[in-house]
Design a binder for these strands. Structure first.
Lengths: 215, 215
DNA sequence: GTCTATATAGGGATAGAC
DNA sequence: GTCTATCCCTATATAGAC
């Protein structure tokens, strides 16, 4: 009864606007004036909620990682074989990333060294480790084929992020609108396919193999 | 005798410095003062060579695409089976991207909408098309396995770019220093491996299959 | 072709009224 | 909690001497 308050505070609206503008313009390209304008308040009022631009930027990133970690743990604790779990995780992960291109752009730019944050959040490394450890276990148990786990997880992150943020510009012929259901489905199938090709052991059936035959 | 003048002009030194700073700080984070400082001249002197910051940024990107296109055409016109050519292309491409993280960062940020360039260069799309058309041909001739060519080429771009620019921050356990020979070799082997898993037909041997067995 | 000096603008952040 | 007004700083870009 105490966490069930869906009230949208001004702070929330600022965070939402900041997410959009930061994703669009990058940290240094973002003007606080623009964020305030979208919320419908004056620039100076932002400083009632956040000490500085950097503080606001940091707050935007916070929740995102927590959300991803929750999704990862849920998928890996689900039912099925290790490969089933990884397939499920991959699908959910792609869904999330494709549904939030602005957040993904912010994370991406952060990884390029855009924001002045001196210390990088350790979440990405921890999340990558959770999944790669899970894969390594499955490989020890002979339930998954041998393949460098970190290389694979990193590649999945790369493909998902790129598809969400850059596909429309770099490869519009392949993916039109990244947020369309069709695009999401295509990316999901592709990434899952790659994961299966790398981790499926001899006997394991792959999902929808006929779909891969395309030119 | 007329193109063989390896003289390094001041303009060249400005371009080199700009490449470094733009890669490090992004377009809006870049200060012309910083570029001038690295060249050893005053900020105002930059405007003798370039009309504006945007002009300088644009000039930095120009050569890069041309270089990539040359590499692609050379590899695809080389000897061997289609898969051989793609393997060779992939290796050379990864080499190039890993050797130039600053340029790669600039391209990446550009694809995120960082720079004020209203119209995006069409090179990436054309380059992607050249390679995916080549793959489609090989598939028609049954020399390559069926697999969505654009999805694969896009994924290779994603993996290479990410490895070059973000691996050290996102996955330092996997890749330490991206410019080290060891890292380059690891990424190369991984990306080539993925390409082979997607395009090799039944009988075709894969390179160094034993190297894939790792945990 | 490089410099000094300056124009012009806009940004983040603060003070203090209401 | 939001506003107006303003401080302070830095940025791009220009003007004109040398």
């Amino acid at each position: 009864m105490d966490t069930a308050a869906p009230r949208v505070t001004t702070r929330d609206r600022i965070l939402a606007a900041a997410e959009a503008v930061l994703g669009e313009c990058g940290y240094h390209g973002t003007r606080l004036h623009e964020i305030a304008g979208r919320v419908g308040i004056r620039k100076a009022s932002l400083f009632h909620y956040f000490r500085s631009k950097e503080d606001l930027h940091h707050a935007v990133l916070e929740e995102w990682f927590g959300e991803i970690e929750r999704v990862i743990r849920t998928a890996l604790e689900g039912p099925g074989t290790p490969l089933d779990k990884l397939r499920s995780l991959t699908e959910t992960y792609v869904d999330m990333v494709m549904a939030h291109p602005a957040r993904t752009k912010i994370v991406l730019r952060q990884s390029l060294g855009d924001a002045p944050a001196s210390h990088w959040p350790q979440e990405p490394q921890r999340l990558l480790r959770i999944v790669s450890d899970f894969i390594a276990e499955g490989q020890s148990a002979k339930m998954l084929a041998p393949f460098d786990p970190k290389a694979l997880v990193f590649s999945v992150m790369a493909m998902a992020a790129f598809s969400s943020t850059s596909a429309a510009v770099l490869a519009p012929e392949w993916l039109g609108d990244p947020s369309s259901a069709e695009s999401v489905e295509r990316v999901k199938r592709h990434v899952v396919d790659v994961v299966e090709r790398c981790l499926a052991v001899g006997g394991q059936a792959r999902s929808a193999p006929s779909k891969r035959a395309a030119v």
